[in-house]
Structures are given as structure tokens and as C-alpha cells.
Amino acid sequence: MAVKFLREKWFYLVLLLAAVTLPLVVTDRYIFQLAIMSLIFSIATLSLNLILGYTGQASLAHAGFFGIGAYGVGLMTKAGLSFWLALPLASFISALVGFLIGLPTLRTRGSYFAIATLCFGVIISIVIGNWVELTGGHTGLLGIPRPKIGSFEFSSQISQYYLVLAFLLLTLFVMHRLVHSLQGLSFMSVRNNEPLAEAVGINTFATKIISFMVANFFAGMAGGIYASLIGSISPSTASFNHTFNWLVYLLLGGAATLAGPILGAFAFPLLMEYLQFLEDYRLIIFGVLLIIVIIYFPRGLMGGIESLQHRIKTRYRLRKGDGKNVVTASGKSHQAV
């Protein structure tokens, strides 16, 4: 157990080192901008992962909540509020809206929730597009101020990169703690077998509400960061395409893992970049890929890596043949997957 723990720590440290040194390696401004976007979308995908990957509820309004966060921060900072106040406020509003939407929709199971959130996502984009006085309608909000600390403004790519990286680490920290805990088991019990979870005393409705609120908080946060770094937003910020993209990142990377969403958010846009010459056909490939992955590799890239790891490990354990020790030594962690 200790060894495994250390190994994981090392693994994360190496990743972190890579992330921190990336700006030194990447000199192409365009690719660098892509990396910043991938960081933002990693946050969004990680939060989608909580409600969909771990809790099993397909929330298709994720971009809607991203939009709430984006417009929240955009409007508040344009009105003069500090980014550092506006961001938590907007994220909180996003979580609160999630709560209100969750009340009627999370009582239902499976398809109902997916469809209801789909509808809600559409409502949000229609409202954003039509409430011209508040949102600027289809032209959107322009000239959103950049985040500042004192007189330092996050205007260079490098500073923006590190800013988003910090938020991603915060998100990862929260997700890691949630998922590797009894609370995480509650989430997974709902995903895996809701009637049984309910029968052994888990308030599945409350569990789903918590997961949905946390997910929407971080979706809103990602949107808020997006708004203030990009500087302009429009109804397309909250569009469905974003939800679809994140879904793909999540599934390709591996749902219900912590590394998967980030992997997906980086690998997939990069892949698309290289396939640029295919133009419209790119999307068709995207669709075909989605179907193939979900049928043949339902656990994505991380799933593939894990089953490989598992195979090696079981062989190792068989050789040692000390099942009893394994139990008590690793009994500390009630963690699945």
C-alpha cells in the first residue's frame, strides 16, 4: 500500500513538473493558447466527470453552467467587481442554479435526467441569446477585464497559463478528496445500482444533488476563468458543442478516473489540430470514433492503461500468494477502480 501510494505521489509529481515546465518547452504561441484552453476545459471535464463518471448522471447542461459562470464573471467584473470576488460568486450561483434544477430532475432516473438537463441547456442558451439588455444578445459581452493582483495583470500567456494551472490543481485536489472517500463511494453506489444504494440507507437523491452542485460549481468556475482570460463571450460559450466536446474528452480519456479527463482534454484537441486538413470530415471521424470507443473501449484510454496495470499486478500477486496480507495492508483505502 505504502509503495503504491508513493508511486502515485511520484506519478503526480512528474506530471506536475511537466505542467510547470511546459511554457519553457512550447514556444509556438498558437499551441500555447491551445494548452491554456485545454487547462480550462480540463476543469470543465473533471467536473462533468464527477456527476457523469462517478455518479452516473448524464448532465447535458454542463455548458449551460459553464455559461452561467462565464456571464456571471463577465457581468460582475465589467461592473467593477474584482475577479477574485466575482469568480467564487459566479461559481456559487452556478451551483445554486444546479440545486434548483436538480430538485425536480434528480428525482428521476437515467434518461429523464439526461433529457431534462438537455432541455435546460437549451433554455439557458436561448435566454442568453435573447436577453439583450443583460447579456448583449448574440453579440455577447466584450471587453471583460483580465484578472489582476494589485497592479499585476494576467495578460501574458505565461501568467495566464499558471493561473489556470493553479485552478486546475485546486479542482483536482477537491475531486481527489471527494472521490477517494466514503462520499465518493456514495457517488459510485448511485451510479452502479441506485435501488440497492437506496435499500442500504443511502439517500440517493441528496447524494446526486451534492454531486451535481459540486460539478456545477466547477463548471461555473471554468466558465468564469474562460470569460476573463478570453475577454469576450457570446451565446456560443454556453452552447451544446462544448458539452459534446467535454463528453468526448471524458470518454476518450476515461470516465471515473482523475487523469482521464485531463488526458482527454489535451490529447483530443491536439489530435483535431493535426487532422485540420480533413476539414468537415473531421467531425464525421469524431462521430465514428465516439461510437467505436464506447462500444469497444468503454473505459477510454485510462481504462486501457489500468487493465494493463491490473493484469501485471495480479500476476505479481499470484506469484507472491499472500492474499491475507494484501487485505489488511490495503484495508485502509476503500477506493474502487
Partner: peptide, 22 residues
């Protein structure tokens, strides 16, 4: 799980829509 068919349906509708656009 239902979510899987749901996602492959999204794949299908992306193909359909893009196909028509192309």
C-alpha cells in the same frame, strides 16, 4: 449502462449532421 448507448447516439447524430453539411 444506458449512458453508453446515449453516447454512441451522440456519435451517430454528429455523423448525420456533419454528413448533411458536407
Amino acid at each position: 449502462p444506458h449512458i453508453n448507448s446515449f453516447i454512441s447516439a451522440i456519435g451517430a447524430l454528429i455523423i448525420l449532421e456533419t454528413g448533411v453539411v458536407v
